[in-house]
Design a binder for these strands. Sequence first.
DNA 1: TCAGCCGCATTTTTT
DNA 2: ATGCGGCTGA
Length: 747
Amino acid sequence: MNTDFLRDLNPAQLSAVKAVEGPELVLAGAGSGKTKVLTYRVAYLVSIGVPVHNILCLTFTNKAASEMKTRTEKLLGMEEHGDGRRFGSWIGTFHSLFGKILRMEADKLGYTPNYSIYDEEDSLKLIKQILRERNLSEEVFAPAGIRWQISRSKNNLVLPSQLEQSAKSRLDQVTAEVYAAYEERLKKSNSMDFDDLLIKPIVLFNRDRASLEKYQNKFRFILVDEYQDTNRAQYMLLKLLAEIHRNLCVVGDDAQSIYSWRGADLQNILDFQSDYPDAKVVRLEQNYRSTGKILKAANSVIVHNQRKLDKELWTENHEGDRLSVMECESDRDEGYKIVQRIRDESIKDKLQLKDFVVLFRTNSQSRSLEEAFNRGGIPYIIVGGVAFYKRKEIKDLLAYLKLIVNPQDDASFLRIVNFPARGIGDVTIDYVRSFASKEQKPLLAIVERVDEIVEIQPRQKNQLKQFARLVNKYNKLKDELSVGELSRSLTDELGLIRSLKDENTVESQNRMENIQEFLGGIAEFQTENPEGTLQDFLAEVSLVADVDRWDTKRNSVTLMTIHAAKGLEFPVVFVSGLEEGLFPLGSKEQDELEEERRLFYVAITRAQKKVYLSYARQRFRFGKLSYQAPSRFLAEIESDLLDQEHATRLSQQRTIWETTSTFDSLRPSLEGIGTMAQEVPRPRDVEKDRTAAPHIRIGTIVEHQFFGEGKVIEMSGKGDNERVVVLFGANQKKQLMVRYANLRIVR
DNA sequence: TCAGCCGCATTTTTT
DNA sequence: ATGCGGCTGA
């Protein structure tokens, strides 16, 4: 087969691609063509005759996986088949590919292929339940903390019994106990959590030699993206699978390791050479993405870290502009300045809005930024935040589908047994639950025998039976109907759309649209996977991240966390909130600080042409105003690479702010009080202010930036939660949060 | 026994 | 925005 495509590679890239046999470590700096090496390597393997199904290529996000698939196919001159499975490659995320293997080998672990995947919310609820059953207080034994501990234990391959042995405190003991119960319950529900998708294959491979050998022989060539982010379990999996053929090629950048909080172990990449002494090491140090100054800035930051491998990026690109530092009065001012700057730049440099990204350390920072974009009338997309698949209405519908596929799924059962409302409350459910745990049966199975529970009222019994009938009906139908038909018929039968329509509020409208979008998504899945079953669909949606849904085609500014931005690039990057305590966030422990620094490195290296770094002198955090010094990271950048924007414009801008906002002027008075705005006696000058909320009452005519004039017809909530329903025009009703909506009182 | 309403707290990063 | 606890009325 033709290997002409290799001519696109530089010498280092080429040697990385062609070293096909044996272990290989590719240290690929930011923007050095990491994905290119991986895709060319897969294409090269195929072109020299390696069957596609013998190649395993692992990534962390679906987005990365699908990009790799597309690019590989292009290199090989393959048409997209449109059947979703493409050319049968094993390119995918760790979680989805091992989830697939688990489905094929489920019986060997006492599972069935239709197992459910519990997300964090499901796990947390289960843990709370276990605590409640044991009369353990949630105040003393924080469920979230226990969940975190369990997850960490799993990732480190620590069993409940081992955790118990090493327990030092009562909390440790309880954690070990809950961990054991949690595992038991998951198994009984034929369910796995995210961690299990990596742990269970290890269990399988250790227990069943034949399975291990089967996959060792199948995956003769293994490629791993973002190796610096692998955890202990992933490391073990790779070690096991590569044992025979040893054709393990890992690509990564220790400087971009930003997931240690999730169990990723930087030591994996640092130790690769000692794990595989015969490993070929290739360094990709030429950067094709950024300007010289951006790269120098990034380098000057990362040298402050101790734990790192030797490597320095260089580029032939233009030197470019200096990085600009923007000092801002407040978080609000920061948003304003960023919006102004985007407006200026997009006109001046003929850039499109989608060329800009605003990055931040924590999701909570997005609120003040969003506000600024709304005021400035600049379209934006937020990646992250409340993810689509985490929305209540979507999760409810998904729970039905999950229970239909896996009748043992207790978490889904509990979620929907009384949704839509069937008059089944906590008391009834508790009876069902205790009977189920006595009988060691799934909840849905118990419902069929509800007559045996004397305490439950006839009305409730009836409702429960009807619920079970409904689920069972669709369980039988699932093989006859397509995924799309089934979901549509189910939503109809549940009357979801109808009842939301009747509710006729802005919220219900949104929910309805979300459900429609979800159904549309199912239809899309169906087109791409004509043979796809409901089980396949669930496997897919359970493992999507929000970044995966990020649509590059829309012409809007992107707002996202730095974590979400890894692997992406943008012409202009704003890094916001560069303040001590926020970025770097949290404690001063050396390892954690180094991770924050790597995060900053990732942020800067997303940029192709221009970087803006902003910080606010004061910022609202945890309901309080706080003052923070500029981030130490700013000082770590070589000063001649920086362009300190002067505060001259600042004073002018401040006056603009004060005429349009009460919020900022209220803030100083809040300091030290530690209360929310509404509890502070209102200063007299605010009385006159046009955004002052207390003046609004039913019947007030207000003006909104986008919707124009409208009449307040409903009010609810108090203080920060105060909401109004405003009727704009003839029939456009909007529910708005007074705090955010910035309504101007007309009369 | 349940539904609905209110007020309150919550926000580090996510497959 | 969401979930939870507390309260009330049916």
